[in-house]
Amino acid sequence: MILEEIKHPELKNHINMMYMHGENNNHEAIEKTEAIIKEYIQDKEFIISVEDNEPVKIPYANDGEYLVPIFTDKQEYENGMEYFRLNEMDENKEYAIEKLNYYKKLKEDPNFLGYIVNIARISYILNIAIL
């Protein structure tokens, strides 16, 4: 699969729905949408920013916790790389196209909080419970 073939408009729609459900305090709908997202991401490939064949880790707080950025399409990836450049993290110029379970050892790391979708806009975090 190549960069231009990665497209996940369904995931983006589900993320938007999560925000709307959250604004309406509709916890039942949030749980249903999380279940849909969990099923959706199981067999899909995403663009993952890597350095030395390892996922890039974005520090979150000061106690060693981190997120791994993923991207749902080429435009999101290009925006994310611009974000990295603006924040002096531009050494992360490589990417891999993988399923999220490819990096199984991440789930075993207690400091791994999940994947952040579209870091340039910080649209959503796929936390450990969803993975």
Rank of each mutant, 00 (worst) to 15 (best):
K107S: 06
V117E: 04
E78G: 11
K44G: 10
E76G: 14
F71A: 08
P69Y: 04
K12M: 07
Y115T: 11
L11M: 13
A29M: 11
N13S: 04
K12G: 02
M17R: 15
Y60D: 13
E5P: 05
L126R: 14
I125T: 13
E88T: 06
Y115K: 09
N62Y: 04
N111R: 13
E78T: 15
L67V: 09
T72M: 07
T33C: 12
G80I: 09
I128F: 02
M89F: 06
N16L: 02
K44W: 04
G114R: 09
I125F: 01
K74D: 04
E51H: 14
I37K: 08
M20C: 10
H21D: 07
I116A: 09
E88I: 00
E65N: 14
T33V: 06
N79F: 02
M81E: 03
F46I: 15
E65S: 14
D43Q: 03
I37P: 10
E23R: 15
K93W: 01
P9R: 04
A120Y: 12
E28I: 14
L100N: 08
G80R: 01
D90P: 00
I30P: 03
N127H: 12
V56W: 01
L67P: 02
L86S: 12
I58Q: 09
E54S: 12
E94R: 03
K57F: 01
Y102N: 14
L131I: 15
P110A: 08
L3R: 10
E31P: 01
Y40S: 04
A96Q: 12
A129Y: 07
I47M: 07
F112S: 06
K74R: 14
I97M: 02
P110K: 14
N24L: 13
E65C: 10
L106M: 08
K32C: 02
Q42V: 02
K57G: 06
P110G: 09
T72N: 04
M17P: 00
A29F: 06
D109Y: 12
F112H: 10
I48K: 07
Q42H: 03
L113D: 11
I70R: 11
P55A: 05
K93V: 03
P59E: 13
N25P: 00
I2T: 14
A35E: 09
L106P: 00
I2M: 11
N79W: 00
P9T: 09
H8I: 08
T33N: 11
E34M: 01
S49H: 03
Y19V: 15
N24K: 11
I116Y: 06
D90G: 01
V117S: 05
E5A: 12
E94C: 02
Y124G: 00
I125S: 12
G80E: 03
F46E: 02
Q42A: 09
I122M: 05
Y95A: 04
P59L: 09
G80K: 01
E98Q: 07
Y19R: 14
N79I: 00
Y95T: 07
N111E: 10
K38R: 02
E54D: 13
K57N: 06
E76D: 15
V117T: 10
I15A: 07
K107M: 04
Q42C: 00
I130T: 05
N16P: 01
L11T: 08
E31V: 02
D52E: 03
F84Y: 07
L106A: 08
D73A: 09
K74Y: 05
H14Y: 15
D52Y: 05
K57W: 00
E108L: 02
D109F: 11
